[in-house]
Structures are given as structure tokens and as C-alpha cells.
């Protein structure tokens, strides 16, 4: 049983890390968004493995269902001509920073940190399936009610702000070209360039 869980954990972490690597390295932005969805799914499965079922469902609903669709819409609204370079000029510096940070986080995790872990005491240490959801709901209306209200206000403000920022007046709106018109335009441009 332990071995099975370890194998599943290894596969899931390979999926999460590999998909995240693809997100930052692949050239096509739409492919990057699809790899991002794969990574989100892997993280949701990790939550299931960690026995946080409610968080796993919320992850699938919010990240896979909402945020990735938002990102895909934004990609399609900003028809990007990225040019020849994928990364910025000083990408090696940020790679060094990321690697250094990983080293700084990696070494002390294994050397010299005692995690003050409670001893596993049989069934008392393992919660039942979905045991925390009732407590979670109770917490939202009693202990964390202020945080809950603030999160609601934040979401409302973000909604209104997003609409205001992305709003375009009718008089300034230009017509979005269809794919055929875009191809025609590109052909005409190429013809003009070849004449030059």
C-alpha cells in the first residue's frame, strides 16, 4: 500500500513539474496554457493524495474551470505576434535566481530542520473522508467571518475593476478582422515586402 502511494506520488510530481517546465519553455502561448491546465490537474490530484478533498474540488473548479478559461480568452483576444525571441534578454539571470532559490530552499529542508511532527497515533491522526468540510463551513461564519467578508469585497472590487479596465467605448471600437481578412492582409503585406 505504501509503495503504491509512493509510486502515485512520484508520477504526480513528475506530471506537475514536467507540465510546469513546458509552461515556461514552450513557444506557443496556447500550448503553454494547455500545459498549465495539466499542471493544475496534477496539483488537484496531489491535494487528493494529501486528503484535502475540498481543496482539490475547489482547485478544479476555480483554476481549471475559471482561471485557465480566462487565460485562453485573453490569449485569443490579444492575437500576439511574439517575434523571434521567447524569453527576455537577461533570462539567464532569472534562471540563476530561480536555481539559487531552489538550492536555498532545498538544502535546509533535509539538513538540520526538525519539523516538530506529531507522532502518528493510529486512527486518531488520520481524519475521515471529508471530515473537515463541516468545520470549514462553520469557520467561515464564525471564526473567519471578517476574512470571508473581506474576500467577498475583494472579489466584487476585482470584478468591477476588470470591467472598467477592459471596457472599450463604442466609438473607439474597431472591427475584429475575420481569419480570411487577416490572411488576405498578410498576403498583401508579404507581396509589398517582396516588391521592395
Amino acid at each position: 500500500m505504501d509503495l503504491l502511494i509512493q509510486i502515485i506520488f512520484g508520477l504526480l510530481s513528475a506530471l506537475v513539474i514536467g507540465a510546469a517546465m513546458m509552461v515556461v519553455t514552450v513557444r506557443n502561448v496556447i500550448h503553454a496554457a494547455l500545459w498549465l491546465i495539466a499542471s493544475f490537474f496534477g496539483v488537484a490530484a496531489l491535494y487528493l493524495l494529501l486528503e484535502a478533498e475540498f481543496i482539490a474540488v475547489v482547485q478544479v473548479l476555480v483554476y481549471v474551470g475559471a482561471i485557465s478559461i480566462l487565460i485562453l480568452f485573453a490569449i485569443m483576444l490579444t492575437r500576439s505576434n511574439e517575434g523571434d525571441r521567447l524569453l527576455t534578454k537577461y533570462w539567464w539571470a532569472s534562471a540563476l535566481i530561480a536555481l539559487g532559490l531552489f538550492g536555498v530552499a532545498f538544502l535546509p529542508t533535509f539538513t538540520g530542520t526538525t519539523w516538530n511532527m506529531p507522532q502518528p497515533t493510529g486512527p486518531a491522526g488520520t481524519p475521515e473522508v471529508l471530515s473537515g468540510v463541516e468545520e470549514l463551513g462553520r469557520g467561515f461564519v464564525s471564526e473567519f467571518v471578517l476574512h470571508f467578508e473581506i474576500a467577498g469585497v475583494l472579489l466584487t472590487v476585482a470584478l468591477i475593476g476588470a470591467i472598467v479596465i477592459a471596457f472599450e467605448e463604442r466609438s473607439r471600437r474597431r472591427r475584429v478582422l475575420t481569419l480570411a481578412e487577416e490572411l488576405e492582409l498578410r498576403k498583401r503585406r508579404q507581396a509589398a515586402e517582396s516588391v521592395d
Binding site: 513539474i17 517546465m21 509552461v23 499542471s39 532569472s94 535566481i97 530561480a98 530552499a105 529542508t109
Partner: peptide, 9 residues
Amino acid sequence: AALFCIGLF
């Protein structure tokens, strides 16, 4: 940590 560093990059 690996996921964080990839995201940072």
C-alpha cells in the same frame, strides 16, 4: 519548491 522556482523563472 521546484514548482515555485519554475514559476518564478
